[in-house]
Design a protein around this nucleic acid. Sequence first.
RNA 1: CGGGGAGUGGCGCAGGCCGGUAGCGCAUUCGCUUUGGGAGCGAAGGGUCGCAGGUUCAAAUCCUGUCUCCCCGACCA
Length: 488
Amino acid sequence: MAKRITNRKDDYSQWYLDVVKEAKLADHSPVRGSMVIRPNGFALWENMKGALDQMFKDTGHENAYFPLFIPKSFLSKEAQHVEGFAKECAVVTHSRLKSVDGGVEVDPESKLEEELIVRPTSETIIWDSYRNWIQSYRDLPILINQWANVVRWEMRTRLFLRTMEFLWQEGHTAHSSEKEAVEETRRMLDVYKTFAQDFMAMPVKTGVKTASERFAGAVDTYCIEAMMQDGKALQAGTSHFLGQNFAKAFDVKFQDTDGEHKYVWATSWGVSTRLIGGLIMTHSDDQGLVLPPKLAPTQVVVVPIYRNDDQRTEVLDYANPLIKELKDKGVSVKLDDRENQQPGYKFAEHEAAGIPLRVAVGPRDVKNGNLELARRDTLDKNIISKDGAAEHISDLLETIQTDLFNAAQERTENVTRDVESYDHFKEQIEDGGFIYAHWDGTDETEAKIKEETKATIRLIPINGESEPGKCMVTGKESVQKVLFARSY
RNA sequence: CGGGGAGUGGCGCAGGCCGGUAGCGCAUUCGCUUUGGGAGCGAAGGGUCGCAGGUUCAAAUCCUGUCUCCCCGACCA
């Protein structure tokens, strides 16, 4: 068998690239750091998007769309925000090309009066609108989400994990009180956690970022962090409490019930196509992609096996009612009746693509009233009776979903431990994984740890019971342990 | 943006040091035989060797520049 995917233990990065390629999720584009999302990858994103969108609507949000281009002056209105994004913005300076012997060049006469920034995130353009929309407490809250592409001029890129242009959703809400905005921030963090765990089957830790890891312009950044198979953490989603920073920068005030004019409180929150990278590195194996049934574009593939036309007819007649029954149950099922490929080829291809369940039907099964079922996650094969097969398959999909989560959860917990001394930390961090340790809360200590171990504080647990101790580096007082890891 | 590696039919590679007009495997097309884990035989099609300059009678090969990808580092979702 031609082995097209590098083994994880040999070269994890290469494995990742091979999986993306073999599962036909995405290609590199001619422009550095940007990618073509192929139908398989986009179908996956559409499923993720669909589930998230429903969850946003269920929590009272509406979708809207704000422009790609942002006047340069807007970016400079919030000091922290500018500083955070200034170094990675694409800037539009001209509006025209002109032909020059066979080619084109930028027409210098088309230089823009005010240069435009391709959005790296939309706080500024959105808050400019919110100023016009908000006068009274009656106009609040505003709960808006947008699905969009954004551009960040990254130095080092990797398919899905960090690309210059990526797809995401960004929620932007405005509230009359701090309390309500903080609640919103945490509510959306919970939505992300639920989505990650229930749909992606990807266990996550939640908490708040330290000042150095915080979103530029936020008061607090909450996050979900997932542990990848190679021991590195991945920030999978963030929810920001923005305080009144943007309201002040864009002068957005409302008249409250007491007649006073007050600045509005804000949140923003987002997840991106990076989640696909997380999904790959949570479940996939040396055969290729492994997808959780709830997000898999195709949940079941049926592969007919036959030797001649008669058998082909017989096998398809046998399989078709089952396919219909599965469809009626809401299972996404595909019949792979291509005649130019052999069954073995199809098996390998569907495994690489991560289809959760494969049903093989051949003359033998027709004779015995059976089906062969193969699970993608465990690679187990079983012969089951055709009677009640649809029910069985639909149950099995749920089992796979749960099993994937449990396996990932167990893997994560196995590499999560507490460490007391810095020496022990330095030694342990070499093995990857999550490490809980005491930290004195200072930027200096955090920077020192990062410098010396390449590990960062992924989050400070929020509902963690306070457990006083001494900072592993300085010995100063610490109220609770924080979560460290090396990360993507 | 710094260090290292790499770009040759769709994919994976050889050729390069020693310049002479491009080859192998897989894939593709057609035919026949096959089909329960990546099929076999026969025939056919497909590449201005990443791009741009230069040296030369002649460049995939030598020189210069540039773009893209991978790995490591600094920076970030």
